[in-house]
Design a protein around this nucleic acid. Structure first.
Length: 862
RNA sequence: GGGUUGUUAGCUCAGUUGGCUAGAGCAUCUCGUUUACACCGAGAGGGUCGGGGGUCCGAGUCCCUCACAACCCACCA
């Protein structure tokens, strides 16, 4: 089949992907050392964003590269139930129908959300295909699949049995209207004006925005270095309250800002996040004074039953009567959290939640980073995580939304402290030995389940049950039918924003559940910003949809463009210019293939060409490029790898080798080189390379399943011969572009390389002729140091003189700089010898060039 | 406020442990339509590497300092 003039990606991409998928090329071969990546599961309910447009190509480059380099490779895709995000979208949809979550049971809600997600789930998977993801679809895991739940329960059970799970009180963001708690990110903060009350508080004066929580005060805090209150620290003071006197402890804590108010803070651990922290540090009791319905409880005495705002007003009035209010700052501005749905003020509320005692897990994870068992790219991210582990506090794994994995715990209706583990979560009540247990209605934090992703997706736990004896490792590795050989994963590739919520948890839970690190390397990519370096957001309207880019420029162009010029861990702008470069590159490759096709078609009976020095030269270049690319991939330097690919194809293959082949027409060799290039480029631009491959190869073999070529043996003498030709041609081009348009003659005297390659040189340099003469004339090709002259009239040579003089000044300047370096004793003494030698050699060659130029100028002047 | 990362050509960015004349893509300019490609070819111009100081034979790279920007965390009673 003839290749069309221009590469039209949309014409080939879907078909090519279907070929890969149906051929089974994405499946591991069962041969070679296992190499595995688990895809960070995109939201099943959503569309891919431009971040995926970067993530997927990187993971696909790795997968395709290792697949083509002898590894037994798998890339496991996933789909995320995205607990919170999906829940918000679903609840909005419910709302549109005039319904609320309170109209349904938990089971109903779960079922409805499931159906809702199922409707949309196909989009994301189609988009992964459009990006060319060569992942093994058969091993796809949804975060709510049975095997996920099973593993999550077994890990929970184990933590429970090990005494690492406990019920604990914790402040949660609570909406008193919806009567549910929210995650931090679900709370919308707004700057608002709220009165700041300066009140008398025992021996202190202090400022507060929340006088109504005074009933829950259990301490009063000052800064440890504050001399004003030094004597009172540690004492218990009596405070006059609206319900009578009460006592609080005076504590010293760094949280207090001496400059704010009077430098004194009342501490209400049950209703303020900061105060809760302080309470933890100082071992203070927490007293709840607000109920879940947003009204004051019995602790508020005569104010019980009032709403928070009513109580605030009433308490202030009462305090004013008692003379406890000093002044009220009515212009005070602060940020108040509100429910994103009903705008109700979020109350920090003390509630019972499930917790994991995290430090034992965290410290083990920290060690795995510090020992180098897990390596981070960029390295900095590992250090950041190690620090984070030290600060990590017990992990609250309960969430109050129905869309998630139910927590398999039941509470004795008669004894709130009696909890049992039971997986029968479909039952809302269990009766065991006459005791009734009620199911906990909470679900797991999504990170608790996704934190187990590497061993869930590879079925590692169930497999390690099968292989429990000493030989398990070996048997596992050899069992080609078992996904467990892919655990631990080779690399975890994900965004820097997921370092704490996700990567940290995978390491902790992986080590805990499997005694192994979940992956050996972590590669973290930064955020893709818009073209002007701004964060993309729907409200700004600057969101770039990867599917639009694919539609306009093609999948390969997006891949190359987005990977190009990008460093690990760095937030960087999206650049359409780079995508255009990617598209141009694909077109270039396409046209190389067209030229190969044409040369072969035009020369059906061409025999092997023995003296093709361009062939030897390109073999060498391709060897080098393969090595370089491998090195870059090994070090996760994707931008550099793409750069190497781009330039080997464009600068070496297209500009020199193909041009030389227009002369040689070495058809057999052209086929080999074409294959080799396609293999090298394939991981980066899979669609265009496969399209070319399947067009040129009629045997039905697919490029995706090929192995990279072995390095070719090269005759370095021939390589340097081609380099000489190249230099000569470059200089001839340089001179002739400065001359009036037209074709020129090259003359040479006693020059073996020119004599042997006269026609090649003529072809490459676009000369009229290359002729041997006895007596030289015209302009000497001086820089390339060849006995060659452009046959120019004395007038033209004379005109060229000024250019030569400029060049001479330039080179003399360079030599001066180099000489100055050598004149510096410190340099000669301290710098490595090879550098000094290099400098000397360079001076020598430049001096020789100066001599030639000087000589040439003398000739011209005569 | 704490932490992290940036600031290199008109734009978007590379530059791995300090070492040859600081690179790429896009954009710009000149010449060119030789049937692979104008999504092209041959060339060219453009940078005191954010400012200042220091270490060193040698600094875009290491140290100090200032300015600016982005991100993460904690957010003020």
């Amino acid at each position: 089949m003839q290749l069309s003039k221009t590469y039209e990606p949309s014409q080939y991409e879907p078909e090519i992907y279907a070929m890969w998928e149906t051929s089974g090329a994405f499946k591991p071969t069962g041969k070679g050392e296992p190499y595995s990546i688990v895809m960070p599961p995109p939201n099943a309910n959503g569309n891919l964003h431009v971040g995926h447009g970067y993530m997927i190509p990187i993971e696909d480059i790795l997968t395709r590269y290792y697949r083509m380099n002898g590894r037994d490779t798998i890339w496991i895709p996933g789909a995320d139930h995205a607990g919170f995000e999906t829940w918000v979208v679903f609840e909005k949809a419910l709302e549109k129908e005039g319904k609320s979550r309170f109209d349904f049971s938990r089971e109903q809600l779960y079922k409805m959300t499931w159906d809702f997600v199922a409707q949309n789930r196909g989009n994301m998977e189609l988009q992964l295909r459009a990006l060319g993801a060569s992942c093994d679809w058969e091993s796809l895991v949804f975060t709510l699949d049975k095997k996920v739940v099973k593993t999550v329960y077994s890990t929970f059970k184990r933590l429970w049995d090990d005494g690492l799970i406990y019920r604990g009180e914790r402040l949660v963001n609570y909406c008193t209207h919806h009567q549910t708690s929210f995650a931090d990110i679900e709370v919308a903060y707004d700057e608002e004006t709220t009165p700041l009350y300066y009140i008398k508080y025992g021996p202190f004066e202090l400022a507060t925005t929340r006088p109504e929580t005074k009933f829950g005060d259990t301490a009063v805090a000052v800064h440890p270095d504050d001399d004003r209150y030094k004597d009172l620290v540690g004492k218990t003071v009596t405070v006059q309250g609206v319900n009578g006197d009460f006592e609080v402890k005076v504590i010293a804590d760094e949280m207090v800002d001496r400059e704010f108010g009077t430098g004194v803070v009342k501490i209400t651990p049950a209703h303020s996040f900061d105060d809760w922290e302080a309470g933890q540090r100082h071992d203070l009791p927490a007293i709840r004074v607000i109920n879940e319905d947003g009204r004051m409880n019995e602790r508020a005495g005569r104010f019980a039953g009032l709403t928070v705002m009513e109580a605030r007003k009433a308490v202030v009035e009462a305090m004013e009567e008692m003379g406890l209010i000093i002044k009220i700052d009515k212009n005070y501005k602060t940020r108040i959290g509100r429910c994103y749905k009903c705008n109700t003020t979020i109350e920090p509320m003390l509630m019972k939640q499930w917790f994991i005692d995290i430090q034992p897990l965290a410290q083990r994870a920290k060690k795995s980073i510090e020992s180098g068992e897990i390596k981070f790219v960029p390295e900095q991210k590992g250090k950041e995580l190690a620090r984070y582990y030290d600060e990590l506090r017990d992990w609250n794994i309960s969430r109050q939304i129905p869309w998630g994995i139910p927590i398999p715990a039941f509470q004795n209706v008669n004894d709130p402290d009696d909890w049992i583990f039971d997986e029968r979560v479909e039952e809302s009540e269990l009766v065991i030995d006459g005791v009734t247990y009620r199911r906990d209605n909470d679900t797991f934090d999504t990170w608790f389940s996704s934190g187990q992703w590497p061993f869930v997706t590879t079925d590692y736990l169930s497999a390690s049950d099968l292989f429990s004896d000493e030989n398990s490792e070996k048997e596992l590795a050899e069992d080609a039918n078992n996904l467990a050989r892919f655990y631990p994963n080779a690399v975890m590739e994900t965004g820097t924003d997921l370092l704490r919520p996700w990567v940290s948890r995978m390491i902790m839970l992986g080590l805990y559940a499997t005694d192994k690190v979940p992956f050996h390397d972590v590669f973290m990519h930064g955020l893709i910003l818009d073209e002007h370096g701004q964060k993309m957001s729907k409200s700004k309207g600057n969101v770039i949809n990867p599917m639009d880019i694919i539609g306009e420029f093609g999948s390969d162009a997006l891949r190359i463009g987005i990977v190009m010029n990008r460093a690990a861990g760095q937030n960087q702008a999206f650049s359409t210019a780079s995508v255009i470069a990617g598209r141009n590159f694909c077109n270039k490759l396409w046209n190389i293939a067209r030229l190969v096709q044409k040369i072969i078609a035009d020369n059906p009976d061409q025999a092997e060409i023995a003296d093709d020095i361009a062939a030897v030269w390109i073999d060498k270049k391709l060897n080098d490029a393969q090595n370089e690319i491998s090195e870059h991939i090994k070090n996760y330097r994707f931008a550099e790898a793409v750069d190497t690919v781009y330039h080997i194809v464009w600068d070496e293959v297209a500009d020199w080798f193909m041009e030389a082949e227009k002369f040689y027409k070495n058809t057999a060799f052209l086929t080999c080189v074409m294959d080799r290039i396609l293999k090298i480029v394939h991981p980066f631009a899979p669609f265009v390379t496969e399209t070319i491959w399947t067009t040129l190869h009629k045997d039905g073999e697919l490029l995706i399943s090929q192995q990279w070529s072995e390095a070719a043996e090269v005759d370095s003498e021939k390589v340097s011969r081609f380099e000489s030709v190249k230099n000569l041609v470059s200089e001839v081009r340089l001179i002739t572009t400065q001359l009036p348009a037209g074709k020129y003659d090259l003359l040479y005297t006693d020059d073996k390389i020119i004599a042997e390659n006269a026609d090649l040189i003529k072809s490459l340099a676009g000369l009229k002729s290359v002729e041997k003469v006895e007596q030289s004339r015209g302009l000497r090709i001086a820089s390339a140091n060849r006995k060659a002259w452009l046959d120019l009239s004395p007038e033209m040579v004379y005109e060229h003189q000024s250019r030569l003089e400029l060049r001479l000044v330039e080179i003399r300047g360079e030599v001066e700089k180099l000489q100055a370096r050598l004149d510096n004793k410190g340099y000669v003494e301290h710098a490595p010898e090879h550098l000094v030698n290099e400098t000397r050699n360079e001076i020598a060659s430049k001096t020789a060039l100066i001599d030639r130029l000087v000589h040439e100028l003398e000739v011209i002047k005569k």
